[in-house]
Design a protein around this nucleic acid. Sequence first.
DNA 1: GTCTATACCTTGATAGAC
DNA 2: GTCTATCAAGGTATAGAC
Lengths: 196, 196
Amino acid sequence: MYSAGMSMSTSERLIEATRELLWERGYVGTSPKAVQQAAGAGQGSMYHHFAGKPDLALAAIRRTAEEMGAAAEALLGGEGSAYDRIEAYLLHERDVLRGCPVGRLTMDPEVIARPELRAPVEEVLGRLRARLAAVVQEGLDEGELNCPLDPAEIAATVVATLQGGYVLARATDSRAPFDSAVRGLLALLAPRAAQG
Amino acid sequence: MYSAGMSMSTSERLIEATRELLWERGYVGTSPKAVQQAAGAGQGSMYHHFAGKPDLALAAIRRTAEEMGAAAEALLGGEGSAYDRIEAYLLHERDVLRGCPVGRLTMDPEVIARPELRAPVEEVLGRLRARLAAVVQEGLDEGELNCPLDPAEIAATVVATLQGGYVLARATDSRAPFDSAVRGLLALLAPRAAQG
DNA sequence: GTCTATACCTTGATAGAC
DNA sequence: GTCTATCAAGGTATAGAC
């Protein structure tokens, strides 16, 4: 992690530019040339620091996955009841119309075809589901959530609602359906005691 | 719609090949050359029938969206209670690891950038949400679903769970998390009377 | 470490013969 | 309607000078 004032090395600039382009255009849609231009680096410079497009993408994907994992842990490991933490995670501010920088990679055929590129995506989404399942289990133990629920299933539903919410938002060019999907999920999860 | 035994015209073969490639590789990852080879057509032949790549993609996307809309209507307009129809829709057989041929287009920057290509995607997903909302409303009217639910929100949650389920499945190269997400949602939706 | 030059392939499309 | 050139541009990388 670089402090705000510190200027980035060429290698850092290449990784950051790649992260932006992967988010915006995916792996297939991102060319080394575009990365070099965005990073202000020459062709030879990029190939000096990285073996090629897949190698650079791997560095970028790993960093993006790491950031996503840390952000999730910060919210799900915070204070409050199980429901409160899940709500905090669902309502966390997101650049909805850009989609999820990790989840969008699953629609990229080249990422899915290369196990080393898919691995960080699988790992961070798996960790997220496990963390959410633990929170749901807490909620069940405390009697806060209704009982006949499988924590792993609810965790998958929560992550899927977010990932699918991005799809609906981008389809409509509006974040409204993302917010609707989240509110619908929260209504279904809401502790019965709190309901009218 | 062509009957099984009828051989397809070149134009039809181009559209069908494009549909497959858009599903597999997206718009950015699909080249006219790949389409021509898959369709067994020459370059000139493709440009005779279609103005170019966007025009051909539009024909393919429209047809895919139409099929998806018809399949959803067949399930949601069928027999049974509101919950039964939603369950039937969620459990409908799908080629999960391939993802949704419509939803995956929302991660394609060129599709989102071209209003004419995004329009059929927005339209069919909007129609699906509206149809689901109507079914949820029926369930509320019948007292079958729990009351403080907003039909439009639940509809968004249902569609998002499916779309996000594809993301989880492709991330893990396994349909298991898709099925988990769906089961979790069904557990949350389940009429209270039916629960232990 | 960075640069320019070079190479070979693919992309997306047009032209004109048949 | 279909075919075979042909084309300018971009994609992905290597070579070698500085």
